[in-house]
Amino acid sequence: MAWLYVFIGGIIEIGWVLGLKYSNGFTLLVPSILTVISLIISFFFFTKSMKLLPIGTAYAVFTGIGTAGTVIIGMLLLGESASFLRILFILLLIVGIIGLKLISSDEDKQHSKIKSKVNE
């Protein structure tokens, strides 16, 4: 379930990052409100994931999803450069995210569970 939380948080992060662009420096009310709401929801899911995942892994995956997604949206919808190197490095980032997921061991998850129970 923790991976679902970090994935949802990362996807919603794309929304608030795009919202920062469209809020015009928080001078436009509706985009600003939507941005702040998206930010809160994104961090809610991110913090839920950290109860079960090591903080470094959770943060790297969360920001990696947000970064890759934002760059992809920028290329597809906002006319940003889609050069070979840019796509290559986004693919490397995605491979890194998948790699972190694959090497995340049950021991790390168990350690996080114990740590969160101690902190309750």
Results as ranks from 00 to 15, higher is better:
residue 107 E to I: 07
residue 35 T to Y: 06
residue 70 T to E: 07
residue 17 V to I: 14
residue 21 K to Q: 13
residue 68 A to F: 07
residue 59 Y to M: 12
residue 80 E to W: 04
residue 41 I to Q: 10
residue 30 V to M: 14
residue 108 D to N: 11
residue 39 L to T: 10
residue 79 G to P: 08
residue 11 I to M: 15
residue 93 L to V: 11
residue 50 M to H: 00
residue 23 S to Y: 08
residue 79 G to H: 06
residue 29 L to D: 01
residue 69 G to K: 09
residue 78 L to N: 13
residue 48 K to N: 08
residue 61 V to N: 00
residue 112 S to I: 02
residue 57 T to P: 02
residue 54 P to N: 15
residue 118 V to R: 12
residue 112 S to E: 09
residue 16 W to H: 12
residue 26 F to Y: 15
residue 85 L to K: 11
residue 94 I to N: 08
residue 29 L to S: 03
residue 32 S to I: 04
residue 86 R to L: 07
residue 8 I to K: 03
residue 24 N to G: 12
residue 113 K to Y: 08
residue 68 A to Q: 09
residue 15 G to H: 05
residue 38 S to L: 12
residue 103 I to D: 04
residue 20 L to E: 05
residue 119 N to P: 00
residue 37 I to E: 05
residue 72 I to F: 07
residue 34 L to S: 11
residue 109 K to S: 03
residue 101 K to W: 00
residue 20 L to S: 04
residue 28 L to P: 00
residue 89 F to G: 05
residue 111 H to N: 13
residue 52 L to D: 14
residue 117 K to N: 14
residue 74 G to T: 03
residue 40 I to R: 05
residue 63 T to N: 11
residue 30 V to K: 08
residue 16 W to T: 04
residue 90 I to L: 13
residue 36 V to G: 02
residue 104 S to F: 01
residue 92 L to R: 08
residue 18 L to W: 04
residue 43 F to L: 15
residue 84 F to A: 11
residue 88 L to G: 04
residue 49 S to K: 05
residue 79 G to S: 07
residue 103 I to S: 09
residue 67 T to S: 13
residue 108 D to I: 00
residue 19 G to P: 06
residue 94 I to Q: 08
residue 26 F to T: 02
residue 3 W to A: 05
residue 61 V to P: 02
residue 67 T to M: 14
residue 105 S to R: 06
residue 71 V to N: 11
residue 40 I to H: 04
residue 93 L to Q: 12
residue 36 V to S: 06
residue 52 L to V: 01
residue 7 F to L: 15
residue 62 F to L: 03
residue 91 L to Q: 06
residue 78 L to V: 00
residue 95 V to F: 15
residue 38 S to Q: 06
residue 79 G to Y: 06
residue 107 E to W: 01
residue 33 I to F: 12
residue 25 G to F: 01
residue 38 S to K: 08
residue 11 I to N: 10
residue 99 G to I: 02
residue 14 I to W: 04
residue 28 L to W: 01
residue 17 V to K: 05
residue 39 L to Y: 11
residue 45 F to T: 02
residue 45 F to G: 02
residue 110 Q to P: 00
residue 117 K to C: 04
residue 86 R to A: 01
residue 32 S to T: 15
residue 83 S to W: 03
residue 7 F to N: 07
residue 58 A to Y: 03
residue 32 S to F: 06
residue 75 M to V: 09
residue 72 I to W: 01
residue 81 S to D: 12
residue 48 K to V: 01
residue 91 L to I: 15
residue 12 I to K: 11
residue 108 D to T: 04
residue 88 L to D: 05
residue 77 L to C: 12
residue 45 F to K: 05
residue 89 F to D: 07
residue 117 K to D: 11
residue 72 I to E: 01
